[in-house]
């Protein structure tokens, strides 16, 4: 440890400041995305009937997975691998909160229909063989909903009963942020921090 060094206090301040700025930057970016992003609502479906509630967060499924391999863009068919970043274009189905995947592309698509939304995600798995049965799964970073300790079970039951919708803010670059949930028609959304 540095002791009796003329740079001691400037260095202490620099370290504390840089770490605080890093945290503030994440907060600022997220808040901006939640405020300015386009708001869409997606039906939440139970993902794993055994244990969707794990400790302090509930795992949310969106019924988009598994995605049909035919929806992968032609230029991506050969090269797509698990953990690759992809852009998934979704379109409202029977209800405004029921979405269907339209296509999976390597970059943000040039043209989309007005009702479409584009989500940036990462491939969790994809079948290697390119045949009729090819499927893939994508994570969008909005699959975990953190809840106060001990309150997860009620929410889990509501998810099983199909009474939960997710409110998602989608940024211009496809980044998705979970704003909150609609449980039994009641909006549960944390206000922006700043």
């Amino acid at each position: 440890m540095i002791a009796d060094h003329k740079w001691l206090w400037p260095l202490v301040a620099a370290v504390a400041l840089l770490q605080s700025v890093a945290i503030a930057k994440i907060v600022y970016d997220r808040d901006a995305l939640l405020k300015s992003g386009r708001e869409i609502t997606i039906d939440v479906v139970p993902v794993d009937p055994r244990d969707i509630f794990r400790g302090d967060y509930v795992i949310l499924g969106y019924g988009l997975d598994p995605i049909d391999g035919k929806l992968i863009a032609p230029d991506l068919q050969e090269t797509i691998r698990s953990n690759d970043p992809v852009f998934v274009t979704i379109r409202p189905g029977a209800t405004p909160a029921t979405w269907q995947v339209v296509k999976v592309t390597a970059a943000y698509p040039d043209t989309i229909e007005a009702s479409d939304a584009v989500l940036k995600g990462r491939v969790t798995w994809v079948n290697a063989q390119q045949d009729e049965n090819r499927k893939l799964s994508v994570r969008y970073g909005i699959e975990n909903y953190f809840v106060p300790e001990g309150t997860g079970r009620d929410l889990e039951q509501a998810v099983r009963d199909g009474k939960v919708q997710a409110v998602v803010a989608v940024g211009g670059d496809g980044t998705a942020a979970l704003k909150g949930l609609i449980v039994n028609g009641e909006r549960r959304i944390d206000p922006p921090l700043l």
Binding site: I23, V27, R30, D56, G141, E143, N144, F146, A177, L193
Partner: peptide
């Protein structure tokens, strides 16, 4: 922060 914004 990840928890507050449900980032995963």
């Amino acid at each position: 922060v990840s928890q507050m914004y449900h980032i995963n």
